[in-house]
Amino acid sequence: MTITQLHYVLAIAEHKNFTKAAEKCFVTQPTLSTQIQKLEEELDIIIFDRGKKPIELTDVGRKIVHQARNIVNESDRIQDIVDQQKGFIGGEFRLGIIPTVMPTLLPMFLKAFIKKYPKVKLKIEELTTEEIIFRINEGHLDAAIAATPLENDNIKERVLYYEPFVGYIPETHRLADKKKINVSDLEIDDMLLLEDGHCFRDGVINLCKAFKDHNDDNFQLESGSIETLLKLSNEGLGMTLLPYLHTLELNDKMKANLHHFVEPSPAREVSVIYHKSELKMQIVDALHNVISGIIRGAIAFHNVEIISPLPK
């Protein structure tokens, strides 16, 4: 049994196809198939049910994949130890970012990070929190930037910043005359929300439900993007809440519709998260340091109350 064979097993389990797995591993399909067959013969079991389309793991195959992932992670740790000993910060690094953080945070830190760590090859994907957790646990992401706390035993979190919620209230809205708003002022029935699957949506719902009991069936207008929510609000269809960084680039006319909360402001905690196996920690540390250094100049709020991003 070899580490290479275990890499092949994990690739097939991920792609459920021998051809795609071979492409991922940069080998020919016959080479990959031969190695899997040798492994199955050595163990005297069948790992993959080739009669299913797509290919499925057998019962024992699922157990082997789980253990193979642990073994491969531990073997990768040897290279990590060598890299850290040499002070090397480089190589491929797969990073996921949630949609409500990506458009504001990424332009702030990406250029500075690339300049400081040119040997790191970042592969960045915009993913929901649910997708991020799955991919970190499956070993398909090295780290991610997401709203926390996530209360997941397999994932570690390092806080980057606390981002207050800000009300965006059109001039025709019932709260338009209030200079500062209270959480108790919020009515979920006239709130424009992001679509299901966005953790910021869950945070807004949790915030409103803390004071009033509402049924999800009352939600009328939802959108996949904050930009669309702003346009709907400008049409007088309701108010919405924005993460603070989204307010910085609004034009003056739109900024006139912003209403901050009475302190302590409701806020979300944004963290860099990674698997408890702590692989590639030198790059995680570098990422955390660069973002933390840049974000201090943009968010100077301290008196905040963290709102959970988890659905309740």
Score class of each variant (00 low, 15 high):
Met1Gln: 06
Ile3Asp: 11
Gln5Trp: 11
Gln5Asn: 15
His7Thr: 03
Val9Pro: 03
Leu10Asn: 04
Ala13Arg: 01
Glu14Leu: 09
Thr19Leu: 14
Ala21Thr: 06
Glu23Gly: 09
Glu23Asp: 14
Cys25Ala: 12
Cys25Gln: 15
Pro30Cys: 11
Ser33Tyr: 11
Thr34His: 15
Ile36Gln: 07
Leu39Met: 15
Glu42Ile: 04
Leu43Glu: 09
Ile47Cys: 07
Phe48Gln: 03
Pro54Glu: 04
Pro54His: 07
Ile55Tyr: 08
Glu56Gly: 09
Glu56Cys: 12
Glu56Ala: 15
Leu57Val: 05
Asp59Gln: 13
Arg62Glu: 15
His66Leu: 10
Gln67Val: 11
Ala68Glu: 02
Ile78Gly: 04
Val82Arg: 12
Asp83Ile: 02
Gln85Leu: 11
Lys86Asp: 11
Ile89Val: 15
Arg94Ile: 09
Pro99Glu: 05
Pro99Met: 10
Thr100Ala: 10
Met102Asn: 08
Leu106Gln: 04
Ala112Lys: 10
Ala112Asn: 09
Ala112Thr: 10
Lys115Val: 05
Tyr117Glu: 02
Pro118Gln: 09
Val120Trp: 03
Lys121Thr: 08
Lys123Tyr: 14
Ile124His: 04
Glu126Cys: 15
Leu127Gly: 00
Asn137Phe: 07
Asn137Leu: 10
Glu138Met: 11
Gly139Val: 05
Leu141Ser: 02
Asp142Tyr: 06
Ala146Arg: 00
Ala147Ile: 11
Glu151Asp: 13
Ile155Asn: 05
Lys156Ala: 11
Val159Trp: 00
Val159Pro: 00
Val159His: 02
Tyr161Asn: 03
Tyr161Asp: 00
Tyr161Cys: 07
Tyr161Phe: 15
Glu163Asp: 10
Pro170Gly: 08
Thr172Gly: 12
His173Pro: 03
Leu175Pro: 07
Lys178Cys: 09
Ile181Gly: 04
Ile181Thr: 06
Asn182Asp: 14
Val183Met: 07
Ser184Cys: 05
Asp185His: 09
Asp185Ser: 07
Asp189Trp: 12
Met191His: 04
Met191Arg: 02
Leu192Trp: 04
Leu192Ser: 02
Leu193Tyr: 00
Glu195Gly: 12
Gly197Gln: 02
Phe200Leu: 11
Phe200His: 01
Arg201Cys: 10
Val204Gln: 01
Ile205Ser: 02
Ile205Trp: 03
Cys208Gly: 06
Lys209Arg: 13
Phe211Glu: 14
Lys212Glu: 13
Asp213Met: 05
His214Lys: 04
Asp217Pro: 00
Asp217Glu: 15
Asn218Gly: 14
Gly224Pro: 05
Gly224Tyr: 08
Glu227Ala: 15
Lys231Phe: 13
Leu232Trp: 09
Leu232Pro: 00
Ser233Phe: 07
Glu235Leu: 15
Leu241Arg: 00
Leu242Cys: 06
Pro243Ala: 10
Tyr244Ser: 02
Glu249Trp: 14
Glu249Phe: 14
Leu250Gln: 04
Met254Cys: 08
Lys255Ala: 07
Ala256Gly: 09
His260Trp: 10
Ser265Thr: 05
Ala267Pro: 00
Glu269Trp: 03
Tyr274Leu: 02
His275Pro: 01
Met281Thr: 06
Met281Asn: 04
His288Tyr: 12
Asn289Ile: 09
Val290Asn: 00
Val290Glu: 06
Ile294Thr: 01
Ile295His: 01
Ile295Tyr: 05
Gly297Pro: 03
Ala300His: 12
Ala300Ile: 14
Phe301Trp: 08
Phe301Leu: 06
Asn303Gly: 08
Glu305Thr: 11
Ile306Lys: 09
Ile306Arg: 07
Ile307Ser: 02
Ser308Trp: 06
Pro311Arg: 00
Lys312Arg: 14
